[in-house]
Simulated scan of single mutants.
Amino acid sequence: MTFRARRPPALLLATLIGLLVSGLAFLAWQHLYPVSAGQGWSYRVYLDEVRLVSALARDTRGDLYVTQEMKAGNGLLFRLGSDGTRQQVVGKLSKPDGLAAWREGVAISQEEGEQPVLWLRDGHTETLFTGRSVEGLASDGQALYAIEDRPGDGRLLRYDALTKQVTVLREGLLEGEGVALCPNGELYYAEKGHRWIKRWRPQGDDQIVLDGLNAPGFIACTEDGLWVAEDATHRARLLLLDKGGVLHTVLSHLRSAQTLLALEPGRFLLAEQGRGRILEITRQAKATR
């Protein structure tokens, strides 16, 4: 006869409760753990209580625009006044997830299905072109670049303002989310599904510049280097790949980081969708002796 030790019911129940409490504590830790700034950086809450905040942009007049990424025609674009007031500018959008200053106005993308990319100027909108799940936008003032967040059939697009033609630069992308144009003309794009950032090359054979990221979403290029905001629910980061090829963690423990907007050298805004707010990030001045 074989005997097996039987765990007392009370001990088994205590074990299960302990595992449940540990799991809940871990989830609470991920949710509540505050954002941490890397060495040489600081942050503060710039604007709070912005449900599903996503894209940020400033037009040539300096007006600040913000999108709220609601679905099914419930998304909207508002203008934020210097006193914190919000004025709705465009409504009935479907997941407006990208903004770019473009030709004395702003271009607006919509990620939900087949939707037009819009151009807002002087209070009026017009359709530029139609894409499929368009997310990130970038511009050099003349051309408008867009990327589609699709499960393996996304495209990297360029829209020419003069010819009004759309050129497909790349196709077959897996969850393309971010696109960035650098001051030197280099073009980068992020594929969230592959966890990488690539530099686009006209001849093909695009180069991977960052890999193994945690849900890379928005990317931007400034004189500091290439910025990456991770669109992960927990433990997301804001990263900076400087011109020397060194990767810096500017902020960590973010929740669904979205658009980074440069205001001036050393000062930025970051949309943190998971906490419904916009952060202001500042490079700290070096102490002088």
Rank of each mutant, 00 (worst) to 15 (best):
G75D: 07
D149W: 03
I278Q: 02
L226A: 06
A14Q: 15
A14N: 08
L24K: 05
V168A: 08
Y43R: 09
L174K: 05
Q284V: 11
S256L: 11
G123E: 02
A257D: 13
Q88K: 02
L261A: 08
V35Y: 09
W227K: 10
G178Q: 07
P265K: 07
R237Y: 13
E111I: 00
L13G: 15
R201S: 15
A72P: 03
T130N: 06
R4H: 14
A72R: 06
R170H: 07
L24C: 06
Q207V: 14
K243F: 07
L24I: 04
R277C: 11
P151N: 08
K164S: 09
G131S: 03
D206I: 11
G136F: 05
E148Y: 00
R277W: 13
P265L: 02
E264D: 13
Q30N: 09
I108P: 00
S256D: 13
G172P: 02
A232L: 08
N74Q: 12
L32N: 08
E49W: 01
D122F: 00
H234N: 12
W119D: 07
A285P: 00
P202C: 14
H194S: 11
A72E: 11
D63H: 09
I278S: 08
R121K: 08
A257G: 14
S109Y: 00
W200I: 09
P183W: 12
T259D: 15
Q203M: 12
H31C: 07
L137V: 02
Y159P: 04
V50L: 14
E280M: 03
G136N: 04
G185E: 07
R237A: 14
E69T: 00
L162I: 06
I17K: 13
V66C: 03
A190Y: 02
V179R: 01
A55T: 01
E177W: 04
D242K: 04
A138C: 04
A180V: 07
E264T: 09
E175R: 01
N184T: 13
R158M: 08
A146R: 00
E104D: 11
D48Q: 06
A215D: 12
A72V: 02
Q258D: 15
S256Q: 14
L239C: 13
T167S: 12
R235F: 15
W29Q: 10
T249V: 15
R61D: 13
T15E: 15
G185D: 13
V50G: 01
G176W: 05
V90P: 00
G152R: 00
L226N: 06
M70I: 01
Q115E: 06
A215Y: 08
W41E: 01
Q273K: 14
R132E: 07
W196V: 11
N184D: 15
Y189E: 07
L270Y: 11
E175V: 02
L269Q: 07
E230I: 09
T85N: 05
R150D: 03
D63M: 03
K92F: 05
L240C: 10
H253D: 14
G245W: 07
E191D: 08
R155F: 00
Y65M: 06
G73Q: 06
H248M: 10
L137F: 00
I281L: 11
P216R: 14
L64W: 04
F3M: 15
L64F: 04
L213T: 07
R267A: 10
V228G: 13
E186Y: 11
C182L: 08
S42L: 02
A236C: 12
L226V: 10
T288G: 14
G266M: 02
L13A: 15
A28L: 10
N184S: 15
L56H: 03
A37F: 04
D48T: 02
